[in-house]
Amino acid sequence: MKIMAFGIGILTAFITMNAVAEIMTEEQEKAYEQQKKQRKKEAFVKAPDVIASYANSIGCIFNLNPENIVEFPEGGNRLFAVFSIDVGCSGGSNMSRPVFVELELSIASMQYYINFEHSGPSQTPMSIPQTVEKIYVKDEKLWYSALEHDWNKDGICCPSVPVTAELKFENGMWIGVPVDLPGNKKTRN
Protein backbone atom coordinates (compact mmCIF):
# COMPACT_ATOMS: atom_id res chain seq x y z
CA MET A 1 0.00 0.00 0.00
CA LYS A 2 2.88 2.38 0.86
CA ILE A 3 4.52 1.70 -2.51
CA MET A 4 1.31 2.58 -4.35
CA ALA A 5 0.94 5.81 -2.34
CA PHE A 6 4.59 6.69 -3.07
CA GLY A 7 4.04 6.06 -6.80
CA ILE A 8 0.93 8.23 -6.82
CA GLY A 9 2.87 10.98 -5.00
CA ILE A 10 5.60 10.92 -7.67
CA LEU A 11 3.00 10.96 -10.46
CA THR A 12 1.21 13.88 -8.82
CA ALA A 13 4.48 15.81 -8.47
CA PHE A 14 5.31 15.11 -12.13
CA ILE A 15 1.89 16.25 -13.32
CA THR A 16 2.10 19.36 -11.13
CA MET A 17 5.56 20.26 -12.51
CA ASN A 18 4.35 19.80 -16.08
CA ALA A 19 1.25 21.88 -15.42
CA VAL A 20 3.40 24.72 -14.03
CA ALA A 21 5.71 24.51 -17.02
CA GLU A 22 2.77 24.69 -19.40
CA ILE A 23 1.24 27.73 -17.73
CA MET A 24 4.48 29.73 -17.84
CA THR A 25 3.80 32.62 -20.12
CA GLU A 26 6.02 33.43 -23.06
CA GLU A 27 7.20 36.52 -21.21
CA GLN A 28 8.10 34.47 -18.12
CA GLU A 29 9.93 31.97 -20.30
CA LYS A 30 11.97 34.78 -21.91
CA ALA A 31 12.77 36.20 -18.46
CA TYR A 32 13.90 32.75 -17.29
CA GLU A 33 16.16 32.29 -20.34
CA GLN A 34 17.61 35.77 -19.83
CA GLN A 35 18.33 34.99 -16.17
CA LYS A 36 19.99 31.72 -17.20
CA LYS A 37 22.20 33.57 -19.72
CA GLN A 38 23.16 36.11 -17.07
CA ARG A 39 24.11 33.39 -14.57
CA LYS A 40 26.17 31.66 -17.28
CA LYS A 41 28.03 34.94 -17.96
CA GLU A 42 28.71 35.32 -14.24
CA ALA A 43 30.04 31.75 -14.13
CA PHE A 44 32.31 32.51 -17.12
CA VAL A 45 33.79 35.48 -15.26
CA LYS A 46 34.66 33.13 -12.37
CA ALA A 47 36.24 30.48 -14.65
CA PRO A 48 39.81 31.87 -14.32
CA ASP A 49 39.55 31.46 -10.53
CA VAL A 50 38.38 27.85 -10.93
CA ILE A 51 41.33 27.16 -13.24
CA ALA A 52 43.79 28.92 -10.90
CA SER A 53 42.59 26.90 -7.93
CA TYR A 54 43.10 23.67 -9.86
CA ALA A 55 46.47 24.75 -11.29
CA ASN A 56 47.86 25.80 -7.93
CA SER A 57 47.04 22.33 -6.61
CA ILE A 58 49.33 20.68 -9.19
CA GLY A 59 52.24 23.09 -9.53
CA CYS A 60 53.84 26.52 -9.30
CA ILE A 61 54.44 29.52 -11.53
CA PHE A 62 50.89 29.43 -12.89
CA ASN A 63 50.23 31.64 -15.93
CA LEU A 64 46.83 32.00 -17.62
CA ASN A 65 45.83 34.51 -20.24
CA PRO A 66 42.04 34.89 -19.75
CA GLU A 67 41.68 35.18 -23.54
CA ASN A 68 42.75 31.52 -23.66
CA ILE A 69 39.43 30.38 -22.22
CA VAL A 70 37.00 29.57 -25.02
CA GLU A 71 33.48 28.19 -25.20
CA PHE A 72 33.23 25.17 -27.47
CA PRO A 73 30.94 24.48 -29.13
CA GLU A 74 29.72 28.05 -29.12
CA GLY A 75 26.54 28.36 -27.10
CA GLY A 76 27.33 25.10 -25.30
CA ASN A 77 28.10 24.35 -21.68
CA ARG A 78 31.81 23.58 -21.97
CA LEU A 79 34.89 25.76 -21.81
CA PHE A 80 38.40 24.87 -22.89
CA ALA A 81 41.52 26.60 -21.67
CA VAL A 82 45.28 26.36 -21.75
CA PHE A 83 47.64 27.60 -19.05
CA SER A 84 51.30 27.08 -18.32
CA ILE A 85 52.67 25.77 -15.06
CA ASP A 86 55.73 24.18 -13.49
CA VAL A 87 54.12 20.85 -12.63
CA GLY A 88 55.26 19.59 -9.25
CA CYS A 89 57.19 22.81 -8.55
CA SER A 90 60.46 21.38 -9.89
CA GLY A 91 62.02 24.84 -10.14
CA GLY A 92 64.63 25.95 -12.60
CA SER A 93 64.33 27.99 -15.71
CA ASN A 94 62.14 26.84 -18.56
CA MET A 95 60.33 24.17 -16.51
CA SER A 96 56.79 25.37 -17.24
CA ARG A 97 54.67 23.50 -19.72
CA PRO A 98 51.18 23.90 -21.18
CA VAL A 99 48.19 22.14 -19.68
CA PHE A 100 44.83 21.91 -21.44
CA VAL A 101 41.68 21.77 -19.32
CA GLU A 102 37.99 21.32 -19.97
CA LEU A 103 35.39 22.95 -17.76
CA GLU A 104 31.75 21.96 -17.70
CA LEU A 105 28.82 24.06 -16.57
CA SER A 106 26.73 22.56 -13.79
CA ILE A 107 23.14 23.28 -14.75
CA ALA A 108 22.07 22.98 -11.10
CA SER A 109 24.54 25.52 -9.66
CA MET A 110 25.37 27.44 -12.86
CA GLN A 111 29.08 27.20 -11.98
CA TYR A 112 31.92 25.78 -14.06
CA TYR A 113 33.96 22.88 -12.72
CA ILE A 114 37.04 21.06 -14.01
CA ASN A 115 36.35 17.85 -15.94
CA PHE A 116 39.27 15.77 -14.64
CA GLU A 117 38.90 13.14 -17.38
CA HIS A 118 39.96 15.73 -19.99
CA SER A 119 42.18 17.99 -17.91
CA GLY A 120 45.67 17.98 -16.58
CA PRO A 121 49.32 17.35 -17.24
CA SER A 122 48.82 13.64 -17.86
CA GLN A 123 46.37 14.42 -20.68
CA THR A 124 48.65 17.06 -22.24
CA PRO A 125 51.55 15.16 -23.83
CA MET A 126 55.07 16.50 -24.11
CA SER A 127 54.60 16.54 -27.91
CA ILE A 128 52.52 19.71 -27.51
CA PRO A 129 54.89 22.68 -27.96
CA GLN A 130 56.04 24.25 -24.70
CA THR A 131 54.94 27.73 -25.73
CA VAL A 132 51.23 27.62 -26.59
CA GLU A 133 50.24 31.21 -27.22
CA LYS A 134 46.56 30.91 -28.06
CA ILE A 135 43.60 28.52 -28.03
CA TYR A 136 40.63 29.38 -30.23
CA VAL A 137 37.61 28.11 -32.18
CA LYS A 138 37.67 28.23 -35.98
CA ASP A 139 35.43 26.42 -38.46
CA GLU A 140 33.67 24.68 -35.55
CA LYS A 141 36.95 23.10 -34.40
CA LEU A 142 39.31 23.76 -31.50
CA TRP A 143 42.79 25.08 -32.47
CA TYR A 144 45.98 26.32 -30.89
CA SER A 145 48.86 28.49 -32.02
CA ALA A 146 52.28 27.90 -30.54
CA LEU A 147 55.98 28.48 -31.01
CA GLU A 148 58.60 25.76 -31.33
CA HIS A 149 62.38 25.99 -31.25
CA ASP A 150 64.63 26.18 -34.25
CA TRP A 151 67.56 24.62 -32.45
CA ASN A 152 69.95 26.03 -35.05
CA LYS A 153 69.26 29.61 -33.94
CA ASP A 154 66.89 29.83 -30.92
CA GLY A 155 67.97 30.01 -27.31
CA ILE A 156 66.15 27.78 -24.84
CA CYS A 157 64.12 30.78 -23.69
CA CYS A 158 62.91 31.94 -27.02
CA PRO A 159 61.22 29.63 -29.56
CA SER A 160 60.53 31.35 -32.87
CA VAL A 161 58.90 28.84 -35.24
CA PRO A 162 55.09 29.30 -35.48
CA VAL A 163 52.92 26.19 -35.28
CA THR A 164 49.16 25.97 -35.79
CA ALA A 165 47.31 22.76 -35.00
CA GLU A 166 43.81 21.46 -34.52
CA LEU A 167 43.33 20.29 -30.95
CA LYS A 168 41.61 16.94 -30.45
CA PHE A 169 41.03 14.67 -27.46
CA GLU A 170 41.70 11.07 -28.46
CA ASN A 171 42.50 7.97 -26.43
CA GLY A 172 42.64 9.93 -23.19
CA MET A 173 45.08 12.57 -24.50
CA TRP A 174 45.04 15.97 -26.16
CA ILE A 175 46.78 15.86 -29.51
CA GLY A 176 47.76 18.58 -31.91
CA VAL A 177 47.04 17.83 -35.55
CA PRO A 178 49.22 20.26 -37.51
CA VAL A 179 47.97 21.93 -40.63
CA ASP A 180 49.91 22.79 -43.75
CA LEU A 181 50.40 26.53 -43.67
CA PRO A 182 53.30 28.56 -45.05
CA GLY A 183 55.97 28.58 -42.35
CA ASN A 184 54.11 26.07 -40.17
CA LYS A 185 56.40 23.44 -38.70
CA LYS A 186 54.98 19.93 -38.26
CA THR A 187 54.72 19.09 -34.56
CA ARG A 188 55.71 15.83 -33.01
CA ASN A 189 52.74 13.54 -32.16
Results as ranks from 00 to 15, higher is better:
1 M>Q: 10
3 I>C: 13
4 M>F: 15
6 F>N: 12
6 F>A: 13
7 G>I: 02
7 G>L: 15
17 M>T: 10
20 V>G: 00
20 V>P: 01
21 A>F: 12
25 T>I: 11
28 Q>M: 12
29 E>I: 11
30 K>A: 09
38 Q>A: 12
40 K>I: 12
41 K>P: 05
45 V>K: 05
46 K>W: 00
47 A>R: 08
48 P>N: 01
49 D>R: 14
50 V>H: 05
52 A>M: 04
53 S>C: 10
54 Y>S: 06
55 A>V: 11
56 N>W: 08
59 G>N: 04
59 G>F: 00
59 G>S: 02
60 C>W: 10
62 F>S: 08
63 N>C: 00
65 N>C: 00
67 E>V: 09
67 E>I: 08
69 I>L: 07
69 I>G: 02
71 E>K: 12
71 E>T: 15
74 E>Y: 13
75 G>N: 10
76 G>R: 09
77 N>W: 07
78 R>K: 11
79 L>Y: 06
79 L>T: 01
80 F>H: 09
84 S>K: 14
88 G>S: 14
89 C>T: 04
91 G>S: 01
93 S>G: 08
95 M>N: 09
95 M>H: 13
96 S>D: 11
96 S>W: 06
97 R>S: 12
97 R>D: 06
99 V>P: 06
100 F>G: 09
101 V>F: 03
102 E>W: 07
103 L>N: 06
104 E>M: 11
105 L>V: 07
106 S>Y: 13
108 A>H: 13
108 A>S: 09
109 S>Q: 07
110 M>G: 02
111 Q>W: 03
111 Q>A: 07
111 Q>S: 07
114 I>W: 00
114 I>E: 01
115 N>W: 03
118 H>N: 15
118 H>K: 14
120 G>E: 02
122 S>L: 13
126 M>H: 04
126 M>R: 04
126 M>E: 09
126 M>P: 00
127 S>E: 11
128 I>Q: 05
128 I>D: 01
129 P>W: 00
131 T>V: 04
132 V>H: 05
133 E>F: 08
133 E>L: 01
133 E>A: 07
134 K>G: 02
135 I>N: 13
136 Y>L: 11
136 Y>D: 07
137 V>N: 07
144 Y>P: 01
147 L>A: 05
148 E>Y: 06
150 D>M: 05
153 K>E: 14
154 D>A: 02
155 G>L: 07
159 P>A: 03
160 S>Y: 07
161 V>T: 13
163 V>I: 07
165 A>W: 05
166 E>A: 00
166 E>Y: 10
168 K>H: 13
170 E>R: 11
176 G>I: 02
179 V>C: 03
181 L>G: 03
184 N>I: 03
185 K>S: 03
186 K>L: 08
